[in-house]
Design a protein around this nucleic acid. Structure first.
Length: 361
DNA sequence: AAGCCTTTCAACCGCTGTCTG
DNA sequence: TCAGACAGCGGTTGAAAGGCT
């Protein structure tokens, strides 16, 4: 049947954006919000198609974008999430606030993929290439672990997306959809749980099914300190969907089974749900389906590295000036870099047969 | 200094999923 | 239920910048 193009191709400008175009787009969105992208170019006086405008905004002009060098933590997060999620850049981007999926994708293709390849790790499978033919149980189990993790994460992401939709529906937000109120861009990260947060229960559970971090690795401090590796979802107290509102009580007593249905999917077996119970799912879901698990999940990922101390204090803000150890290849590669990449190797190689997630999918 | 090669990343393309009438 | 409109996603491209000879 043939789909009509998103916009008439004739007469529309393509290629790099000029500062003038940027300014037009910026000022229009600041004043009116983007509204319908299709209609925006005409209203804003731009000879561009709506798609191009959206891309320019989301990947470049959005005010909440962090540009510049990726911190070590960000790199680790990308690598580890890629091992679980594959090329699902937008999903990965949800764990790296202020970074766009395009930027992450580019960084992966231009830096990380090469680094892993040089280390002898297949960037696709995240397995050591030399072991590619090995059919050792360890790898099978390791793969199984990763698959389990990926499925859990997928379920969470879907729940997250659903909550976003719910939130948007419920917040009959002001007509203006200018980013500060109702932005298409990721809202600020959900407030991280406090030390006593139930999400730590999830982390503890995960620690039981994943190689434990070094004794001196302050996993909890990562969870607390890290601003980023969590869902970018953010619900203000008032805009929380009713299902979520009130879920954050310390004992989670008001949570009902319904509360975490959002994470149940047809594909989940009974075992899966039992597994949720086993890991005190009711606790880690207390922080809402959107944030608690994400915090625990990514926190676990981040925590699982012996690069902990070296990266402490290298959070996003600290690293803006590139104060962290740069990951460079070459002869001059320092001990820290070795440790850093070794930690990734260890993660990739790690398998904990007896610690597989209890779920059977 | 000039030419060539490599790397980077903004932007495009085409497909898919979701929404709406 | 269906078809069209739209937004979003991931793969790919190509211009620009940087490095090397």
């Amino acid at each position: 049947m043939g789909r009509s193009p998103c916009c008439e191709k004739v007469g529309l400008k393509k290629g790099p954006w000029t500062p003038e175009e940027d300014q037009k787009l910026l000022s229009y969105i600041e004043e009116h919000g983007h509204g319908s992208w299709r209609a925006l170019p005409a209203k804003a006086g731009l000879q561009r198609c709506g798609k191009s405008c959206r891309l320019r905004w989301t990947n470049y002009l959005r005010p909440d974008i962090k540009r510049g060098k990726f911190s070590m933590q960000e790199e680790q997060t990308i690598i580890q999430l890629h091992a679980l999620l594959g090329n699902r850049w937008s999903a990965i981007a949800t764990h790296l606030p202020k970074r766009t999926d395009n930027e992450i994708k580019n960084y992966w293709n231009t830096h990380l993929k090469k680094q892993l390849a040089k280390m002898g790790i297949d960037p696709v499978t995240h397995k050591p290439k030399s072991d590619a033919l090995a059919s050792a149980d360890g790898h099978a189990r390791s793969t199984a672990n990763l698959n389990h993790m990926a499925q859990w994460e997928s379920a969470r992401l879907e729940a997250e997306a659903r909550l976003v939709r719910e939130s948007k529906l419920r917040s009959s937000a002001p007509p203006s959809n200018f980013p500060p109120q109702n932005s298409p861009s990721p809202p600020p990260p959900v407030a991280m749980p406090t030390v006593a947060s139930p999400s730590l229960d999830a982390l503890r559970a995960w620690q039981g099914v994943w190689p434990k971090p070094a004794a001196n690795s302050l996993v909890s401090s990562h969870i607390i300190d890290l601003e980023s590796p969590t869902s970018t979802l953010s619900f203000s107290e008032n805009t929380l969907p009713p299902r979520i509102q009130g879920m954050g009580t310390a004992d989670g007593s008001n949570r009902k089974e319904e509360d975490w249905k959002c994470l149940r999917r047809p594909g989940f077996s009974l075992d899966t749900e039992d597994a949720f119970a086993n890991v005190e799912a009711t606790s880690w879901l207390t922080g809402s389906c959107s944030g608690g698990f994400a915090a625990g999940f990514t926190g676990m990922l981040i925590g699982n590295t012996n690069k902990q101390n070296a990266t402490e204090g290298c959070d996003d803000s600290d690293n803006a000036g590139g104060s962290c150890v740069d990951v460079e290849e070459g002869e001059g590669e320092g001990e820290e870099n070795k440790n850093y990449w070794n930690s990734i190797l260890n993660l990739v190689n790690s398998s904990s047969p007896s610690n597989s997630p209890p779920a059977v999918f």
